[in-house]
């Protein structure tokens, strides 16, 4: 699959959040739209909304609830990844 335009490999049981936690430093996971501060997954059980990520063009998806799929396009919601 694709993470910010680069090809990455993931385990079959990875969620988007667990893939990202293994691929990028936690302070590079996302930035909060409200405060601008870096934030990263907290609960991994769908409660906290700290794992938000863009998947296949749809922003603000809970990365911990979405299983990785072949060909999936994931974008981090940080300015460096092309989003404000």
């Amino acid at each position: 699959m694709e993470l910010d335009g680069e090809t990455v490999m993931a385990g079959a049981r990875d969620t988007v959040a667990s893939l990202l936690l293994g691929s990028v430093a936690p302070d590079r996971y996302r930035r909060s739209a409200a405060s601008g501060h870096p934030r990263a997954p907290l609960c991994m059980m769908g409660v906290c909304f700290e794992c938000l990520v863009e998947i296949d063009g749809q922003t603000n998806q809970q990365g911990c609830l979405v299983r990785v799929r072949d060909g999936m396009r994931i974008r981090r919601q940080i300015p460096e990844a092309g989003r404000s």
């Binding site: 936690p26 870096p38 990263a40 907290l42 609960c43 991994m44």
Partner: peptide, 17 residues
Amino acid sequence: PGVMYAGAAQLMLKTAN
């Protein structure tokens, strides 16, 4: 970032090893 709940670590052990 880098702060998680204990349950999160446990879920990652269980679901993704």
